[in-house]
Design a protein around this nucleic acid. Sequence first.
DNA 1: TAGAAGCATTCGGTATGCAATATAGTTTTT
DNA 2: AAAAACTATATTGCATACCGAATGCTTCTA
Lengths: 260, 260
Amino acid sequence: MTESEASFEKPGAGKARPRAAARTRFKPSRLKLSASDAKQPLNTASLHDQLVMRLREMVLDGELRPGSPLPERMLCETFGVSRTPLREAFKVLASEGLIELRPHRTPMVMPLDRDDIAAVFEVVLALDHLAAGLTCARATAAEIATLDAMHARLVAHHHAGARAEYFRQNQQIHAEIARLAGNPVLLATWTALAAKIYRARAQANYEAGRWDESLQEHEGFMTLLRSRDAERFAAAIADHTRRTRKAVLAALDLLAKQQA
Amino acid sequence: MTESEASFEKPGAGKARPRAAARTRFKPSRLKLSASDAKQPLNTASLHDQLVMRLREMVLDGELRPGSPLPERMLCETFGVSRTPLREAFKVLASEGLIELRPHRTPMVMPLDRDDIAAVFEVVLALDHLAAGLTCARATAAEIATLDAMHARLVAHHHAGARAEYFRQNQQIHAEIARLAGNPVLLATWTALAAKIYRARAQANYEAGRWDESLQEHEGFMTLLRSRDAERFAAAIADHTRRTRKAVLAALDLLAKQQA
DNA sequence: TAGAAGCATTCGGTATGCAATATAGTTTTT
DNA sequence: AAAAACTATATTGCATACCGAATGCTTCTA
């Protein structure tokens, strides 16, 4: 099966006698569980929750491209679900700013807007700075060791020229720094905003020099974290984010020119 | 009518022939439009959108108290709507952290958690600091004059001993400072978090001395803003928020003791 | 030929019925 | 008397049908 044709496990599937299938305009295309899935415990998340997670992932990694339409009935057929859980999922994703709902119009994936990304960066800068200071103060030695291990993997990806894995690992390191700040509200806020940046980066490639610089910056701020220099660590993280912002906005500008 | 028995204008109400009322377990209690409402243009927001705004407001101002249950059918009867728009509204409010949904259980208003409020303050501090710096740099003279006028109203409320109005005006001044930063992402993020603080303050009264201090602090930072001293203005705003945090958390602690 | 009016189609918004789940109360067993 | 098993009830999750809004196409009129 293709990625987008995910199988959604109905709560209680396989237990009671299923409802008689009604005649519909769209042929349901629910997929069978694979052998490995069948052995796992039933998925207890509601359909609506599963759809939120799946659609969010598809928007973030660019599988659903900015501006593309999301017709309800078509997606119902794709996912093998009814409109109710899909519509509920749409409402949540719209609240998160990932899709755009218009009255009596086909929903669509929220377009990428350069000014919006710039505004997001402005806020993420402040949150990165705050997180860095808190992480320096609160992370245990073991947690810093975990970050070191993640950094080592980043270096390995760089040496291997594995750009996609490097990009992902990079993101995970920053997420871990935010997590180690020990503030769930900060983490949730940061994560939501970082997701928008992640989307922008998925659309726009920036030049090769940047990822060399990026690795050096990571080396630098990891040293500062190990020595618990909170002020300089926070400043280094903020500077790193500024440089990333410059690269991402430049790449978006280039992309806009290419599409004009 | 009471506040909670809001009338929801059905899209297209008054146009086509209405659907025959189905027999239901709950007697619908839709309210008639008042004479003044009838003269206004039809409300085109969907039922679901109206419900989101109404329920959010009821949670934030304490009309729906933390921890209280939100049975679907009862609220459907209260608002005169069906379950579909209400459930969609619930999903959005859960996403905003204002209500808590549990599988196959009655939803409830998200309880107030002291640690959560403390975490929110930690983030709002950073956002206030960022907003203050940007507002100092970006606000026009006219916009600062508007803030001055709002400050004058704050002083008037204080002199009149009108505590509720003072509290509301205080909140509006801080919201305006966030708005004048000129970053919609910052404003949206700040607003969502400030709403949680607003909820906490609605539950907990803090001592009389604090609002005297608060007014003095407002006097101080307005002076710094007028003179465009960004660094000191930002520091003063952050300090003001720290003191507010101290008072709110102390009041929540006292409330917890009283309820134990 | 251009603009207006009417009609058909598509698709989103909402209402409602049925199945599933969790819990409380009752009965049976130890 | 206490624990386990069973049953009933209340309520949510989801599927489906119906209605209304918006748009595109066709026809009519000036």
